[in-house]
Structures are given as C-alpha cells and as structure tokens.
Simulated scan of single mutants.
Amino acid sequence: MLGTCGERPYADEGDADVTMVWGRAEQQDFRSRVRGCIVGGAVGDALGAGIEFDSLDRIRAAHGPAGVTDYVTAFGRRGAVTDDTQMTMFTVEGLVRAHVRRDTGDWHPPTDVHRAYLRWYATQNHWGPDERTPDSGWLAREEWLYSRRAPGGACLSGLEDDRMGTLDAPKNPGSKGCGTVMRSAPFGLLVGWEPALVFQLASECAVLTHGHPTGRLAAAAFAVIVHGVARGEDLETATRGALALVAGHTGHEETTAALEGALAAARSGPPTAERVESLGLGWVAEEALAIGLYCALVAEDVRHGLLLAVNHSGDSDSTGSVCGNLLGALHGETALPPAWVAELEGRGALLQLADDFAMEMTQGGELHGPGAVSDAWTARYPRS
C-alpha cells in the first residue's frame, strides 16, 4: 500500500529492485538506456538553451527556415546545459544516495532527493564547492555546476529553506511550472520498481518545489513513461500506462488532456513546428510533457526528434530535454548523434553519474551492505 511521505511507504516496495536477477546482457542494455536517457536529455537541453526565449519567427529569421540545426552559443559556449540538466543530475545523485543509505535502516528516497536538491540550490548561490562539507559527495564538488542557468523561480523558492514539501503540505501550492517535469526522468530508470511506486515517488519529489496537482501529476506521468520504455515498451504503450495511473488521481484533467493531445497530434499528419505549438509552449508542466512526448512519438531518429522539440516559440530547452530523455531511454546511448555528445558541456560527469546509477541499481550489493563495503563508493555517495 502506498502512503505519504510521513508514512515512509518505501520499506517493502522499494526492495523490488534488489531481488532482480541481472545477467550481463541485461546490465549492458540497462546501462545503455540510462546513459541514453541522462545524456540524451542533456543534449536536448543544450540544443534549446540558446533559443529558449525566442519566438519561432525569430528563430527562423536568425537560423534559416529549418530553425536551429546544431548547437548555438548559450552561457558563453556551444553545448551548454541549463538548470534542467543540473537538477536531473542531482535527482540521479539523490536516488543513488538513497540506495546506499538504506543500509542504515533509514530508507525514504524523497528525503534523499530533497537533500540532493538542496545541494543543487547551493550551486546556485555559492561561488564554488565548500570544502568544509566533505559529506556533500562528489557531484557537489563539480565546479562547473556552480553557475545559474535560468533556474525557475519555484525551484529556487521551494528550496530556500530546509522545510521539505510533502503531498499534504507542498511548496508553492499554486505552481505547475515545467521545473517538475524536466528533472523527473531518473525516477523512471528505477526499472525494478512497480510503475505505481515510480509514480508515487515522482509525485512526492515534485511537491518539494511545485504544489499544483498538474505539476506533480505531469512529472509522475513522465517518470512512468520513461519507466515503460526503459523496460522495453514502445512509447505509445508506455503512455497508455501513464494515462491509466493518472486517471485515478484528483486533478488529473490537464495532464490527461496533454497526454491524449500528444497521442492525437502524432496521428494528425507530418510533424511541423506549428503542430508542436498547437500543444502549447512548454512553460507549464503538462505542455512541456506533451511537446516532448509528441516529438519523441513522431521522431524519425534522435536528431529529427530533438530538432523538432526545440524549434518553437516556447521553453525550448525543457521540451528538448524531455524529448531527449525519452528517446535516449528508448534507443540507448549509441542512437545519440555523436558530434552533439562530443561537444556537450559536462559530458564526463554526466556519463560518470549515469554509470554509477546503473552500477548501484544492478550491483549495489557488492558495493555496500553486510560483508561488502567499498570505501571509495561510500566516499562518493556518503550515507550521512
């Protein structure tokens, strides 16, 4: 039975991933999908970063009738990522640390994700890492992350104090900005969990900053779609599964309409930027989800899908990120355009984080726990 944050419902259900039997082929496939999801989202984010606030007409005037077809300069360089990728990385780190900390008997993943987001918040307000806090882990010591990349107001205000938002007392109860969706793909990579628990966890972590029902339900639906494709489902089947879960929650109407709108648009003829804009502009959660999903559904390949996802008059980096997460989880890392991956900011850290996540989920028992402790691993992901 699923409960609220205060009831700590994860003690039994969360053990499902530990009991999975991972053969070598399954581990390799999983790692490829994790890499694809995390790096693919960052590539989509970077493609949209330089045009995030431009209209479609302005994009076409500056870059030609096709719009952008490659990285453009943002934040002083090509291939720069935004807060979308930053927060996604800290979501991954929080989930790894939650699994490591389970050995202590204190197993409540939303708490660990909240602490990870507080570490992200520090990167938005400090000049660089604080060497006086060694238990912050390796990710918080990555100096390149100490840079504001147009973070959303609700993400910042939701983390400006230590109080943890819950389903009963969410932060920013009126906000449904896309800041919940753009960071939630990693929950879907918990492939050993049941979809309902993935949905629950993504919901609880959305209300850490955004309390509107659509904000959390769109994030949860996105996580469940990623979960489905990471387990080998096609996108439409995974979306139907998310629709079924969303329908049981109060306030689901906007999220349901967005998902159904994306499916309908995919059947409505050749993809165009104008059809993308018919789904919204992506500034709010359900629109970012609908646009990213639609572009992934109609993508001829990863390149085509990502360019479609960023060339519109809205939140191009967030819709590109959502589309990249989906296509990467669906097809794996080798489907990503290599030139874009090569030029991506933070590529080394992204790959390291993805590999660490995959190793923790498939081989965590050999890294920590009774009779097996890697000091190097627990230094990277401290239990405290």
Rank of each mutant, 00 (worst) to 15 (best):
L344C: 08
V246Y: 07
S268H: 07
A273I: 04
A218N: 07
A290W: 06
T334H: 13
S32H: 14
T334Y: 10
R216F: 15
L306F: 00
R78G: 04
G282H: 02
A223I: 10
R163G: 00
P271Q: 09
A329S: 02
Y71R: 07
E233C: 15
R267M: 09
F357Y: 03
D103H: 15
F222C: 03
S32A: 13
M361D: 09
F75C: 01
R78Y: 12
G280S: 11
V100N: 01
V229G: 03
T4A: 11
L201H: 05
P195H: 04
E194M: 15
G174P: 02
A285I: 12
V246Q: 05
Q28W: 02
D54E: 07
A154H: 02
V284N: 11
A218S: 14
G48Y: 09
L217Y: 00
G192R: 08
E360F: 10
V34L: 08
Q28P: 02
P170F: 05
S175T: 14
V276G: 07
V341N: 10
P65F: 01
D57Q: 09
W22N: 04
T319D: 00
R115H: 00
A379D: 14
T378G: 11
W377P: 03
P151A: 08
T334Q: 15
L263N: 06
E343V: 15
R78D: 12
S268N: 11
V18A: 05
L2M: 13
S374H: 13
A335P: 10
L327C: 11
G41L: 11
L308E: 00
M1Q: 14
A372G: 08
T69W: 06
E236R: 14
G248C: 05
A202I: 07
R380P: 03
L289F: 09
G152V: 08
